[in-house]
Computed example of a mutant assay.
Amino acid sequence: MNPHLRQMEEDRALRDAARGLVKNDIAHLKGDVEEKGIVARIASSAMMGVGDIVGEGIELAERHKPASYGLGAVFAVVLGSWALGGGGSDESDDEDYAWDEKD
């Protein structure tokens, strides 16, 4: 048998096997999505991600307690200054946008 013809038949068999696997995966996904909706799937994935982040944050804070207290204090100060109005300047920032106005 011609080596090119044999290679073509082997490639075709591999292609057909891969196509069958992809079709099975698609059918499985369709059934899985019908069983559990997309929104519920996204919500559960998000909750798992949040749980992982919180767990890692707690573990990191327990390993580095003095640093976590300092970071918590800095975060509280930044959040507090932002919540209370920021810079404390009553001046208007209109001059920052002077380039936008036409004389």
Rank of each mutant, 00 (worst) to 15 (best):
M1L: 11
N2D: 12
N2C: 11
P3Y: 11
L5W: 07
L5T: 11
R6N: 11
Q7T: 04
Q7C: 10
E9S: 11
E9C: 09
A13E: 00
L14H: 08
L14N: 09
L14R: 08
R15S: 11
D16T: 03
A17D: 13
A17W: 07
A18V: 11
R19E: 01
G20Y: 02
V22E: 01
V22L: 05
D25I: 14
I26Y: 04
A27V: 15
H28K: 13
L29C: 08
L29E: 05
L29Y: 07
E34F: 13
E35T: 01
E35L: 03
K36A: 09
K36G: 02
K36N: 05
G37I: 01
G37H: 01
I38L: 15
V39Y: 07
V39W: 02
V39T: 06
A40S: 09
R41S: 03
I42G: 07
I42C: 11
I42F: 12
I42N: 04
A43N: 09
S44W: 04
S44I: 06
S44F: 06
S45N: 09
M47V: 10
M48C: 13
M48L: 14
M48E: 15
G49M: 01
G49F: 00
G49Q: 02
V50I: 10
V54L: 02
G55C: 01
E59C: 07
E59M: 07
L60A: 14
L60Q: 08
E62Q: 10
R63I: 14
H64T: 15
K65T: 12
K65H: 10
A67Y: 10
A67H: 08
S68H: 08
Y69V: 14
Y69F: 15
G70A: 14
G70S: 06
L71C: 05
A73H: 06
A73L: 12
A73Q: 04
F75L: 12
V77Q: 05
V77A: 14
V77T: 08
V78C: 06
V78D: 02
G80A: 05
W82I: 10
A83N: 03
A83F: 15
A83S: 08
L84T: 13
L84P: 00
L84V: 05
G85K: 00
G86T: 04
G87T: 13
G87Y: 02
G88Y: 01
S89Q: 09
S92H: 06
S92A: 05
D93A: 14
E95C: 06
D96I: 15
Y97P: 03
A98K: 10
E101H: 11
E101Q: 12
K102G: 04
